[in-house]
Design a protein around this nucleic acid. Sequence first.
RNA 1: GGGCGAAUAGCUCAGUUGGCUAGAGCACCUGCCUUACAAGCAGGGGGUCACAGGUUCAAGUCCUGUUUCGCCCACCA
Length: 879
Amino acid sequence: MALAKKYDPHATEKKWYRYWLDGGFFHAEVDKTKEPFCIVIPPPNVTGQLHLGHALDNTLQDILIRWQRMKGKNAVWIPGTDHAGIATQIKVEEELAKEGKTRHDLGREKFLERVWEWKERYGSRIIEQLQDLGASCDWERERFTMDEGCSRAVREVFVSLYEKGLIYQGNYIINWCPRCQTALSDIEVEHKDQEGKLWEIRYPLADGSGELVVATTRPETMLGDTAVAVHPDDERYKDLVGRELILPMVGRRIPIIADSYVDPSFGTGAVKVTPAHDPNDFAMGQRHSLPQVTVIGPDGKMSPEAGKYAGLDRYQCRKQLISDLEKEGYLVSTKAHQHAVGSCSRCDTTVEPTVSKQWFVKMKPLAEPAIEAVKKGLVEFIPSRFAKLYLNWVENVRDWCISRQLWWGHRIPVWYCQDCGEVIVAREDPTACTKCSSGNIEQDPDVLDTWFSSALWPFSTLGWPDQTQELEHFYPTSVLVTGFDIIYFWVARMIFMGLEFQKEVPFHKVYIHGLLRDAQGRKMSKSLGNGIDPSEVIEGYGADTLRFSLVSGTAPGSDMRFYTEKIEGARNFANKIWNAARFALMNLEDFQPQGDEFASLPLELADKWILARYRKAALEVDRWLERFELGEAARVLYDFIWSEFCDWYLELAKPRLYGRKGEEARRAAQYTLWYVLSRTMELLHPFMPFISEEIWQQLPHDGPSIVVASWPAPPESFADEEAEEQFTILMDSIRSIRNVRSEKQVPPGKKVPAIIQAEQQLQDLFGDWGQYITELASLSELELTVPGAAPEKAEAIVATGYTIYLPLAGLVDLEQEIAKLEKELAGAREQLGRVENKLANADFVQKAPAHVVEREQKRKQELEALIANLEKRLHELED
RNA sequence: GGGCGAAUAGCUCAGUUGGCUAGAGCACCUGCCUUACAAGCAGGGGGUCACAGGUUCAAGUCCUGUUUCGCCCACCA
């Protein structure tokens, strides 16, 4: 069967993925005789489709897992999806809105049915996308954060933390999203600078003896003011502390308090205190036992406490209030002011800090071990600078608000007795009050923050709370691969939950990758419409191409631009590999390897060279992978395959493969070609799994699939520095002849003779392998002599230890050549000068490592030889 | 306000224990349909490695400062 000239990924990718699944190559049972290597997938949200960032994240994970699997580890990649509470609920609500309904129209039960339908639809779409990408997940172990097992883990953790006193319920100030109608944790709020205003408002003293001017960016909250604070050392206000003010428009008497939180240099130095709507004021309120007056309701509208403003939207109220204040003469000034405003990370609505009864996780006791673990290096961040980011957050973390006023999620396992008021926190759903035995109990309507269940992912996916073999063998997992944007949300929380419940970190390493950006360096986003859909890329170019374009140029922690030229580059690479394989297959039709034939076959210099280069490439790929430099590993493969294997080795193997040098020589070339190509496909497999399998399968091979082939471990015997050096000399001479031909515009098809005058030590090399020059530089004949007189009318290529003459009658331009040689000579002399200076420097010779000094000495000799050669040639020309 | 990152060829970026004669891809120029590949082959041009100091025998690489971008965190009303 003739293979197509152009590689068609579609013909192969589906076929092999099916084959891999059928063969069960991705499934791993616990095997205690092997070292475990486990990755748990960052579970994608079931909100919709995977984006390019997911494709990157999962390509990186797949490369690591395939590599470790080939290295013989007990490798398992556990896949799954996240229920993504608030995000998914918003999506389904949007879908309902199109039908003109809200979730309340359906009721909780019906609404949840709708969300489960959604989950089924998009969950399976995501799995398909991962499979299209080639992800070698163990699908038998697929999990969902709300499946039975994960839910049991959540329940166990909640109850256990409650029993330890680490979960509590209380009225505190939290971030409230008026659109989502739920509490949010601190990190779910995004702070953005906005152009706002700073209003100065006068508050008259109750006794009519004067006034105090306060500054605020949120005048509507003044309706809930219960004090005005000044700095205790502020001389301006010292006498006022303890006295009372009349709150304008409201008429309430409020005290003037002293608190060192106040910055005397900002505004007027007097701060209105609204404990119910500002976190700082809340804290001040606690310190001074101030009452809390909630004036903004859960829907963002003013509450009955707001008096005549009740019912107004918070912004309408602001407008109205300012106008009223102005009318009444309370407004002192209005200034432009830039300040940070918090908004809901899911819907972008400006959040309202408000006092509300919520459930919290007490962070201090959990954070301490999580800090220690990273400081001790039990969890290593790659790159390491992200450890600082992590520590900075964990060291300053506040208690975690975990209750959400949503329907989609893990229902809080707390029941309230309607008769005696008992709070029941239970692992199993209770039917009656534990205190008064009343059956009249009601479950807390709220659900848990999505990240509560994700925090348990590394052990809930391994079967916990059951003590499974998997948990014992695979926990702690080996590496977590993710973006820096969820270090706080997820990585940190997994670490403290893992430490609390497994007494061990959840993973040894965290490999952080950057963000994908568009060609202009902008973040890819839906609103900009500049995102690239991974499915479309796979559709158009194939998964291998997508993967390779994502991985090449990627470095830990740094963002990467992504654009079509990059995809095309990877596509071209795949095609190059494909054609090299086609060529190999055409010449290996009658070939079957018989054990290790390297010892018995007559290897040529080119064979020894490519084996030496292959060995180095394999070692480097492995070394880069060990260091999580996947981009560098990909580059090594690209360069080796394209610039060495294809450009040089295949070209030099041709005469032998075509049988022009006898059967034995042909066999040597075939064997080397087969060997290097097969091993190279194995090295490439983690990066481009499909094409490597397709080619590997067509070559003679052992085993059912490249997926379970052994990772190449090139023998020491392939190392051959001499062959590499010699081959470099031949490549240089070929390139110089091609250069001259090109400059002199000798038609590519035209063969020309050449004469090489070589020093003694190069005689053998050119004698044995001058044929390579003849072949690759299109020579008609090659004459080899010792240095001597120059032939008539020949263009010379002057090199170290040899000179190549090309008798190109009629094309030689004497002056041009002299000029060129003089330039070369000047350059060589300058370099020699530098080398001589170095070597004359006693400090250098003494302090630099021996191999560096040796190299300089060698270089000096080479330059001297080159200069002598150039001078000789110039003399000839000038005569 | 604090912290972090980046600045290298026209563009995008490599350059990981300091030893480079600074690389690649794309773009550009020249010539080629050479029986694996025109998604290709061969050749070529193009860089005072942001700036200023310092350490060192040696600095794109380490230190200090400056400039310009970018990101993260933060309760200054």
